[in-house]
Design a protein around this nucleic acid. Structure first.
Length: 668
RNA sequence: GCGCCCGUAGCUCAGCUGGAUAGAGCAACUGGCUUCGAACCAGUUGGCCGGAGGUUCGAAUCCUUCCGGGCGCACCA
């Protein structure tokens, strides 16, 4: 609603300036005045015009004001300060339109492919992985079609590096540290399942041990590294017991990861695996394509002699005889493909540019509303298609900025500018642990580490907070609060509320800071349910619902009742001191901004914008709640307005929280 | 050495494409539950927006430079 009016105002202002001064404005800035007393929109355009017209800004503003005021839906326009044009909306009319759900649509054409999570399937998920998955899942929710918006057709995939060094390390541990055979690993999985144990936790420790084992004996170091490499090659080749063991383990860990994410309502549509990228020869197709397009060539001299390399962007054609030492190696001199090479092939597939190549698909698991597919050499029919994206969004740690830009530049170099332009790396800073948190977890720290503001999480060192452990702690803490407040409620309902609160706390914790902020994780902050937290926002929504329940009305009925009421009397504003009408109006004005905020969050690929807005809504409602006692309101019309305020707030709060993946509990 | 990111209240962070007296939360202190349930609200204390130049009617925001911190720069994935 806010956005609709804003756009209309911009058009009207542009036209007015054109008519009055014959000046064409390219861009009209619209801001919100510092307080609602000054107005709902502020136009600083008189400042810009002052220079061009050689006239005082205030004088220009005076001339423009009456012209602008003629627009429908606008109550008045006033000149303030040095020349601001402050615009007031027709409050009563606007409130009716907001209540009716009028808003500008968000969405468009073209398949959006969001990729997130992508945890190496060789250990348990930790807090860093949670940030990735929560960011990606939330962004997908912003894009997807729903009752509010057209959205875009959206697919979510989780790339599984099941044949990489990390899985190889787990296999080395099982085989060479523990002497296990394929049958033994089978038995281990069965035993863990029977005992309620977990393979991802089991490997968390083993992986850390293996990483240490490689380097602990200087005499053995070389041999152990060779063993690691050999194991890796066996995985990549397939068709042997080492590869079978890796597949067994990686699939079991993957299932664990999906369970962990499922606790947070995070679901996937497709799980492409590296094993199929290899077995289906994606790279070979990409290689031929790249050679044909002159991006890839064999180096004949210099340090990269014998490799196939890619020219980096911005590097000029070299004179004959010169070698480009800075070129990126995609195929090593031993003939194997580098990570970036494989990634380029994979991304060509995403955009449907890999000349007819596609994965086979089979169903891996069922969610209540859809299936999750996994890559296969020989798939099932029929199946959905994912490699047809118009735009892709990769949620990956900022430390991968350079490799990611390599892939983009390869696409551009191949002439796929359209694809390169629609490749978004949703990067984010790491989650680290505060030294205090690390010590609480029982890690011993050096004096130097103790002084640092934060310590990087490392799966290789087994250093970090496991996702499920954190969730368990959060749920236990939330349960304690619920138990204390609602001892009479049945246990099952209390558990349900506690779970929703715990997940709300976690998701909000990860989403409230912007992507490039390093999160120094601490249990004290993460387990907080007060202040700028998910539970605070949930609580506001619950209280709004409670008002309606106690009043004996529904959300729909209280909104419908508003249509028959003239609210202008109750929304009247003051001149210098804010009135009750101003307070009420600012609640509605904030409510009107949903689609504007949503659009901004999508454009910036920044869910934090929406999370902060949710908090603002909750905070404004808490104010409203304390200033207005709805049930005791004696004026029938005003009571209708107050009930509608609670109803619309609940509606929009629930909507925004749903985009953030946070449920509103029945009671708190 | 090259590239990218960051430096805002005691702490953790917002601050949109430059706009009106820089905002939240936490912590500290004061006050508010017989109430639509206090996971809340009101108030107080707290900032030379790392330093210095510049652009502009106007800079936390843009440019230059310096200081301090982080990350990335493989024939590892």
């Amino acid at each position: 609603m806010y956005r609709t009016l804003q756009q209309r105002l911009i058009n009207h202002a542009t036209q007015t300036v054109q008519e009055l001064y014959g000046v064409t404005l390219e861009r009209v800035a619209v801001e919100q005045p510092p307080t609602v007393l000054l107005g709902d929109f502020a136009l600083p355009l008189a400042f810009e015009l002052a220079k061009r017209l050689r006239k005082a800004p205030r004088a220009i503003a005076q001339e423009l004001a009456p012209q602008l005021a003629s627009m429908a839906g606008i109550a008045d326009v006033q000149v303030a300060g040095a020349g601001y044009l402050n615009v007031r909306m027709d409050r009563a009319a606007t409130v009716q339109r907001i209540a009716a759900g009028e808003h500008s649509d968000v969405g468009g054409e073209g398949f959006r492919l969001v990729e997130h999570t992508s945890i190496n399937p060789n250990k348990a998920a930790h807090v860093g992985h949670l940030r990735n998955a929560i960011l990606g899942d939330t962004f997908a929710r912003l894009l997807r079609p729903d009752e509010y918006k057209t959205g875009w057709p959206t697919g979510v995939q989780n790339y599984i590096d099941n044949t990489g060094v990390q899985v190889a390390d787990a296999v080395v541990g099982l085989v060479h540290l523990q002497g296990k055979s394929l049958a033994d690993v089978h038995a281990l999985l069965l035993q863990l399942a029977a005992e309620g144990g977990r393979i991802d936790y089991y490997l968390w420790d083993l992986y850390a041990r293996v990483s240490q084992w490689y380097d602990e004996d200087p005499l053995q170091k070389e041999a152990r590294r060779a063993l690691r490499l050999q194991t890796l090659h066996e995985l990549e080749g397939g068709e042997n017991d080492t590869a079978r063991m890796a597949d067994l383990v990686a699939t079991a860990v993957l299932s664990r990861h999906l369970e962990t994410m499922n606790r947070l309502s995070i679901e996937y549509d497709f799980l492409p695996r590296e094993s199929e990228v290899l077995l289906l020869h994606f790279w070979e197709a990409a290689r031929q394509e790249m050679i044909a397009r002159g991006v890839l060539y064999e180096e004949t001299a210099g340090k990269n002699k014998g490799c196939w390399v890619m020219r980096r962007p911005g590097v000029e054609e070299l004179a004959d005889g010169d070698t480009d030492e800075d070129a990126k190696v995609l195929v090593r001199s031993n003939g194997t493909v580098t990570y970036v090479g494989k990634d380029i092939a994979y991304h060509l597939w995403k955009f449907g540019l890999l000349s007819g190549k596609d994965f086979g698909y089979r169903v891996f698991r069922e969610y209540p509303k859809h299936s999750c597919w996994i890559s296969a050499v020989n798939g099932e029919e029929p199946h959905p298609y994912f490699g047809t994206a118009s735009a892709i969004f990769n949620v990956i740690d900022s430390r991968q900025n350079d490799p990611q830009s390599n892939v983009v530049e390869a696409l551009r170099g191949m002439g796929y500018a359209e694809a390169a332009d629609h490749y978004t790396h949703i990067n984010y800073a790491m989650v680290a642990l505060t030294p205090r948190c690390a010590m609480d977890l029982g890690y011993s720290l050096s004096d130097e580490d103790r002084q640092r503001p934060y310590l990087e999480v490392s799966g290789r060192k087994g250093f970090g907070v496991k996702a499920d452990d954190l969730l368990d702690k959060l749920i236990a803490a939330a349960k304690g609060e619920v138990d204390a407040r609602h001892p009479e409620t049945p246990e099952a309902e209390r558990i349900e509320s506690a779970t929703a609160i715990a997940i709300g706390a976690l998701r909000f914790f990860m989403l409230k800071v912007t992507r490039n902020t390093i999160i120094a994780f601490d249990f004290r902050d993460a387990l907080s349910f007060e202040g700028e937290t998910g539970p605070y926002v949930q609580y506001a929504a619950v209280r709004a619902a409670n008002i309606l329940r106690k009043a004996g009305v529904t959300e729909e009925s209280s909104i419908a009742a508003l249509a028959a009421v003239d609210t202008s009397l109750f929304l009247e504003g003051g001149m210098e001191i804010a009135t009750a009408g101003d307070d009420l109006w600012s609640m509605w004005l904030l409510l009107s901004r949903v689609s504007a905020v949503l659009e901004q969050a999508i454009a910036a690929a920044e869910p934090a914008i929406l999370a902060r807005y949710a908090f603002q809504l909750a905070q404004e409602f808490s104010n409203f709640y304390h200033r207005n006692h709805v049930l005791n309101e004696t004026d029938a019309d005003r009571k209708t307005l107050l009930l509608a305020t609670a109803a619309v707030t609940r509606r929009e709060l629930a909507r925004v929280l749903d985009w953030l993946g946070i449920r509103v509990p029945a009671a708190m």
